[in-house]
Design a protein around this nucleic acid. Structure first.
Length: 115
DNA sequence: GCAATGACGCTCT
DNA sequence: CAGAGCGCCATTG
């Protein structure tokens, strides 16, 4: 359908279990900077059996973006908690400790210092 | 073609 | 921390 979707799904699949990424973060990783909305749309077109961990994507403030079926936001939260993700009393993910820090390949620099 | 509508984000009040 | 404003863009009517 939309070739960009494939890139988006690929990016989401990279998010490790127990960590979360923001829509904007995913967009950038997919090579589509500034198109966070497109990420949301892409996830919406997704089907359960696609093997894409859509629940690991939250908005920039760590909240679970509301959508048509209110129940889906509950499902998302439950799945995240099952992976060990903690929430603030306000119902937002503790981004400081769970946001996925893209493992920007350490690079030889940092290894050189260790040895 | 134009206007409205979003699983969004960043800046500035 | 909550809003408002504005940017972004594929879809839909």
């Amino acid at each position: 359908v939309n070739p960009a979707y494939a890139r988006i799904y690929a990016a989401v699949r990279r998010v490790p279990r127990g960590r979360v990424a923001t829509y904007g973060q995913v967009a950038r990783l997919a090579g589509l900077p500034g198109r966070a909305r497109l990420v949301g749309r892409a996830l919406g077109e997704l089907s359960e059996g696609a093997g894409v961990p859509w629940h690991r994507v939250v908005n920039a403030s760590g909240g679970i973006s509301p959508r048509g079926e209110p129940v889906s936001t509950k499902v998302q939260r439950r799945r995240l908690e099952r992976e060990g993700v903690r929430f603030t009393p306000a119902g937002r993910v503790l981004m400081k400790s769970h946001q996925w820090a893209v493992a920007a390949e350490p690079g030889l620099e940092s290894f050189r210092r260790l040895g």
